[in-house]
Every structure is written in structure tokens, then in C-alpha cells.
């Protein structure tokens, strides 16, 4: 089996964590070639070559691939798809955008958010906000798969795969990039952080969210939020954890002023240790919490920040 793994590239650099986790899943399917597509991605290609278990790295360096436009990336992958039995990518926004398009062009189904590889044709994936796990077997000639990275360990480094340049058809002209508004942050990235501190509607305002950020910084943690907190403008969209936001599984997840709706639990219930701080002892978040503290967050959070 020959597997093409599409590396995640962010701002021209290799997103090592997401790519290395998807690589672990891909290795269970066959021999892996990594595709690094983007603009100015020579270094990203070199970084991918050091991942443990990659047989080869293909680099497509072209402005047409610079802004994750699905139409251009899908065409590039389509042009090389004949050589592979599996096309795999981590479940990032980029891959969620492009992979179903690739699948449809190949006239095959997509396997979204795969959380387990049973064998080269059989996969596990969560459905209904993670309330059920489905095992599915694909009869398609090419398997197009996105990987739920939170359930795989990252492949190590120390590899030295050969790097080859390739080129594709370039710009299809169907869509064009206008601008990015990306948050600059020194904090760890949400989906790969060892600790995540999240705030919900209970935090009350954007100003109060500083308290959540302070606790996060004390723990060298990433900051997350519930949908209610994002919708209310307390936190930016890319902090949303949940069924329709990001899925995280850190060593420690601290949920503050979050009730624990199923859509939120879907994004964090595989965390190793869960702490919940909520003033309502009936809040469903306590059903998944290892350590629950029934308290007013405005007292408990500053105290916790100080005592840690």
C-alpha cells in the first residue's frame, strides 16, 4: 500500500505536531510519501523529511498553493493520486476544506475525522458529537481520509527521507486570497498543548477572560473557550473547543464556567485529567471531570492562579 500524506503547512512552516500525528496513523496503512504544498516551503519540506517513517517527501512550491485554496490543492493531489491507495491528511481546517473535494473528484467517499485504523480498509470514526463510534470499511479504490490528530501520538524525528520537487497545474482561477487575520500568540497551539484552560459563558465578559488567560499563562497552557463564550465575543473563533470547533486531548483540561453541553464535551472528553470549576453542582461538566470544584469562578480562579 502506498500512502500520500498531505502535510499541514501554516504560514509557510510545517505544522509538525499535526503532521507527525497524522503520520503515525498513515504508517498503519502502508509506506508513506509526504506532500508539502505551499509558497516558500523548502524549509517545511526539509522539516518533513526528518519525521520518522516518511519514505519520501515531495515539495510543490508555488504561489498557487500559498493560501490553502482548495481548488488548486485538490487539482495538484488529483494529478498524482494514481500512484497511491490512500490519501491522508490531519483534520485541520485546510484539510477539511480540500479533502472532500479531492474525494469527489476521484469519485470516492471521504472518511472524515478517523480516530482509529483497524486495517488498511477499515477505520473508526466518531459520530453524533462523539456519542457513538462507528467502524466503517471502505470499498473505494482510493481511500481519502482525514485524521483526528488528538487520538494519535506524534511520530518521532530523526528520519532522513529524500526530498523531491514537483510541480502542478498552478492556479485554477476559481478563487483568490484576499487577507488573513490570524492571531499572534506566544502561547502553545490549542490542539497540541499539554494543558488547556477554557472559559465559558460564566466568565461573563471579554475583560474577565483575562483571568482565564492569566491562569493559562501560569500553567504554560493554551486558552480555549466554549461556543457561548465565542458567540458572546469574549474569545476569538479559533479558541472554540467542541464538536464544531477544535478537538483537544491534553494531559490537563481546565473548564471554567462551562456547563458541559454535549457539543463541548465532544471536543475535550478524551483529555487525560479534566478539572471543572462551576458554581452549579448539577452542571453536566462534573460528570466527566476527574476533579470538580463547586465554587464561584471569580474567587476560585485567582486563588488557583496564585497557589499553583
Amino acid at each position: 500500500m502506498a500512502v500520500l500524506l498531505i502535510a499541514e503547512v501554516a504560514g509557510g512552516a510545517l505544522a509538525v505536531d499535526a503532521t507527525a500525528k497524522a503520520l503515525t496513523a498513515a504508517k498503519a496503512m502502508g509506506d508513506v510519501t509526504i506532500l508539502v504544498a505551499g509558497e516558500g516551503v523548502a524549509d517545511a519540506g526539509a522539516a518533513a523529511a526528518t519525521l520518522d517513517g516518511a519514505a519520501k517527501v515531495l515539495v510543490a512550491d508555488d504561489a498557487a498553493y500559498g493560501h490553502d485554496l482548495a481548488e488548486n490543492l485538490a487539482d495538484l493531489v488529483l494529478s498524482m493520486a494514481g500512484d497511491y491507495s490512500h490519501i491522508v491528511a490531519p483534520s485541520t481546517a485546510t484539510a477539511k476544506n480540500a479533502m472532500p473535494r479531492i474525494a469527489a473528484l476521484l469519485d470516492v467517499m471521504i472518511l472524515s475525522d478517523v480516530s482509529g485504523v483497524v486495517d488498511a480498509d477499515t477505520f473508526e470514526r466518531p459520530i453524533y458529537a462523539g456519542n457513538a463510534i462507528q467502524t466503517v470499511k471502505s470499498g473505494d479504490a482510493t481511500k481519502v481520509i482525514t485524521i483526528r490528530t488528538s487520538t494519535f501520538d506524534a511520530a518521532g524525528q530523526g528520519g532522513s527521507a529524500a526530498v523531491e520537487s514537483i510541480s502542478g497545474a498552478g492556479d485554477k482561477g476559481l478563487s483568490s486570497w484576499v487577507e488573513d487575520k490570524l492571531a499572534e500568540s506566544d502561547r502553545p497551539e490549542l490542539t497540541s498543548a499539554g494543558i488547556v484552560v477554557s472559559g465559558g459563558r460564566g466568565v461573563g465578559s471579554e475583560e474577565n477572560f483575562a483571568m482565564i488567560e492569566k491562569l493559562a499563562d501560569k500553567l504554560n497552557a493554551a486558552v480555549g473557550a466554549s461556543r457561548a463564550a465565542v458567540d458572546s465575543g469574549f474569545a476569538p473563533n479559533d479558541w472554540q473547543v467542541g464538536q464544531t470547533g477544535k478537538v483537544v486531548a491534553p494531559e490537563l483540561y481546565v473548564a471554567v464556567g462551562i456547563s458541559g453541553a454535549i457539543q463541548h464535551l465532544a471536543g475535550m472528553k478524551d483529555s487525560k485529567v479534566i478539572v471543572a470549576i462551576n458554581k452549579d453542582e448539577e452542571a453536566p461538566i462534573f460528570q466527566v471531570a476527574d476533579f470538580g470544584l463547586v465554587a464561584d469562578l471569580f474567587e476560585a480562579v485567582p486563588e488557583l492562579t496564585e497557589k499553583l
Binding site: 477499515t122 457513538a132 462507528q134 467502524t135 472528553k269 466527566v288 470544584l293
Partner: peptide, 21 residues
């Protein structure tokens, strides 16, 4: 895709309530 089976996700073990920070 053939659905081989649909199962429950792994359950979390019940945790505890703590009394103070």
C-alpha cells in the same frame, strides 16, 4: 462505506468533587 459496527465511546471513570482550591 460499509458500517461494520457502531459502538459506545470509552466511558470515563467517575471523578471526585474537591472542597477547596
Amino acid at each position: 462505506l460499509t458500517i461494520v459496527k457502531t459502538g459506545e465511546p470509552a466511558a470515563r471513570e467517575a471523578g471526585i468533587k474537591v472542597g477547596s482550591v
